[in-house]
Structure formats: structure tokens, C-alpha cells
């Protein structure tokens, strides 16, 4: 019997609802750890320290009360890995059903608006909403990664096409460095700093931004497998945190919690730097699903 026969739609849908609940109401441990460290770095009693303290209390209360960490439950972005032979349409249907149910249960705010009529669909489903990317893999399991990305941080995300004469940014790492600093200074606290920067170097306009967003699934404290990128990430983080923008843009030592960079082959004619800004409320979770066992990380 093919493995996919044993997957039950209802059970999968229930597991997806739990994935949404956990993602909206519980922040990942690595993010909480990074915010806690940021608080320790600030002078006790300073505005920055008090802001970070309030953020940590909010994270704790949201978990206890099972309410959304932030009322903007954002764009719902899914990356799904499927076993060979599993129907994409079945999984997409389960995701859409779980999304409707999660909205009814107030884990998600109704957030899908038709740009032509201004009408809110009321249940977070619509055209390209939720946004799902499928890939196939060898394992006999379904992996679903979910990210809830708020509008404030999405609005300060940005894409540069190099060379950029106004920044004197050329098609090299110096050019990349310049665009990233420029993006962070432009964003100030408006993306709900301290944020996490997902950066895509190369690709085209859409694959570059997709790559940038995929970086945001990495743990805050992981290390890039590419030693060159690992160095670039740590140098950028250090310099960004010397800008003094701080939590919410009130000033302080922590403007970013992490910088994560990925690369994709580009056309000879194009050199894009895509920067996806994620707010401190970095809501992401991965579900590993088989009919026998479901785990969340």
C-alpha cells in the first residue's frame, strides 16, 4: 500500500490547526533567548531595557492565555515537503480548512483583503492566501513550515538592484553591505525592532525575495554552512547593532537579533539584494507529520 493512503485528511487538518495555534501564540525558544540576551545587554532601568522586558512579559502572557502574541497575525506563509505520491491539492485543502478554523478560534485575525473591492474575506483565505510552496522529498512524512509575518515588518522589507549609484553600491560584497545598512537605517524602529534580517543575494526579483524569506526559518543562533556567509552575517550584525536604533527605534544596543543570508545564481545582467525584515515577534514553527506521530519544533 502506498504510504500516502494512510494519511487521513481530518487528522492532518487537526494537526495543522495545532500548528497555527502554536505559531501564533508561542514564540520559538531561540528567539526568546535572543531577546533575553538583548535585555541583559541594555542598562537596567533604561527605556530599551524596559521595552524588552515588556516584550518578554507579553510573550509569556500570550502563551499562558493562548492569545496571539501580536494582533497582526500577518501573512500566512507555508513551505511544505511532501512524500512521493502525496497530493498537493489534498494538503492545500487541509491548510485552507485549518486556516478557516484557526480564524474562527481567534488564533488568527481576519487578514485577507481584496485589493479591488476592499472586502475582507473574513477567514484568511483568498487568492494566494495563505501562500504555499510545495516541494517533494524522499521521506515518508509531511513537513510543514509555517511563518506568520506581520504587515509592519513586511512594509519595511526592500529589494535593491545593484549597482545603486545613490548608495555607491557596486556588484560585490561591499555593495551588499551598503544596501543592508541603508535598509536598516531606513526602517528605523518601524519594523518592530529588534528584528531579524533574512537576506537573499542573487536570483531574480521573486526568487530573491523568496530566498530572503526562507532564511527567516533558520534558528537565530545557527551558523551559516558557508563560512564566507557566516562571516558576513556576523560582521553585519555587529555593525547594525552599532547604529543605535534599538528596540522600537527608541535608541539602544540591539537593533537586530540576527542576520541570515542565502545566495542564488543570478543572471549576468542582474544583481539583486533582497531584504526581508522580520519583527521581534518572529512567529515560525515546523510540523513533522506522519499518521503515527506529529511533532512541532
Amino acid at each position: 500500500m502506498p504510504i500516502t493512503k494512510s494519511f487521513q485528511d481530518e487528522a492532518l487538518q487537526a494537526a495543522l490547526l495545532e500548528l497555527i495555534r502554536q505559531t501564533s501564540t508561542q514564540l520559538p525558544h531561540d528567539v526568546i533567548k535572543a531577546i533575553t540576551m538583548a535585555k541583559k545587554a541594555e542598562k537596567e532601568g533604561s527605556t530599551a531595557s524596559q521595552v524588552l522586558d515588556a516584550i518578554l512579559r507579553n510573550i509569556e502572557r500570550a502563551r499562558e492565555k493562548v492569545t496571539p502574541i501580536c494582533q497582526d497575525t500577518g501573512t500566512n506563509i507555508y513551505y511544505v515537503s511532501l512524500p512521493i505520491g502525496m497530493s498537493m491539492r489534498r494538503v492545500e485543502k487541509a491548510i485552507r480548512e485549518a486556516t478557516r478554523e484557526a480564524t474562527r478560534k481567534a488564533y488568527l485575525r481576519p487578514n485577507a483583503v481584496d485589493p479591488l473591492t476592499g472586502k475582507n474575506s473574513g477567514d484568511n483565505t483568498g487568492i494566494m492566501a495563505p501562500f504555499i510552496t510545495f516541494v517533494e522529498w524522499e521521506k515518508p512524512a509531511i513537513e510543514v513550515r509555517l511563518m506568520l509575518k506581520g504587515g509592519g515588518c513586511e512594509n519595511v522589507s526592500i529589494q535593491y538592484s545593484l549597482p545603486d549609484t545613490s548608495l555607491k553600491a557596486g556588484r560585490d560584497l561591499d555593495g551588499v553591505y551598503k544596501t543592508v545598512l541603508d535598509a536598516v537605517v531606513k526602517a528605523q524602529g518601524r519594523g518592530c525592532a529588534p528584528g531579524i534580517l533574512g537576506i537573499g543575494i542573487g536570483g531574480d526579483r521573486s526568487s530573491g525575495m523568496l530566498l530572503a524569506k526562507q532564511q527567516l526559518f533558520r534558528k537565530v543562533d545557527d551558523e551559516n554552512e558557508n563560512p564566507l556567509l557566516a562571516t558576513l552575517e556576523s560582521r553585519l550584525l555587529k555593525d547594525i547593532n552599532s547604529l543605535g536604533i534599538g528596540p522600537m527605534g527608541f535608541g539602544g544596543k540591539t537593533t537586530a537579533l540576527a542576520v541570515k543570508i542565502g545566495v542564488a545564481h543570478r543572471l549576468p545582467a542582474s544583481y539583486f539584494v533582497s531584504i526581508s525584515y522580520m519583527c521581534w515577534a518572529d512567529r515560525r514553527k515546523t510540523m513533522h507529520y506522519t499518521p503515527e506521530m506529529v511533532t512541532y519544533d
Binding site: V51, I55, R61, T67, C70, D72, G150
Partner: peptide
């Protein structure tokens, strides 16, 4: 007055 972005639960309280 600047409130703290994302502080949904605490402010609701």
C-alpha cells in the same frame, strides 16, 4: 505617545 509594537496581550490587559 509611542506604544510598544506587538504588545497585544499586555496592552489588552
Amino acid at each position: 505617545l509611542h506604544a510598544i509594537g506587538g504588545l497585544a496581550t499586555l496592552i489588552a490587559e
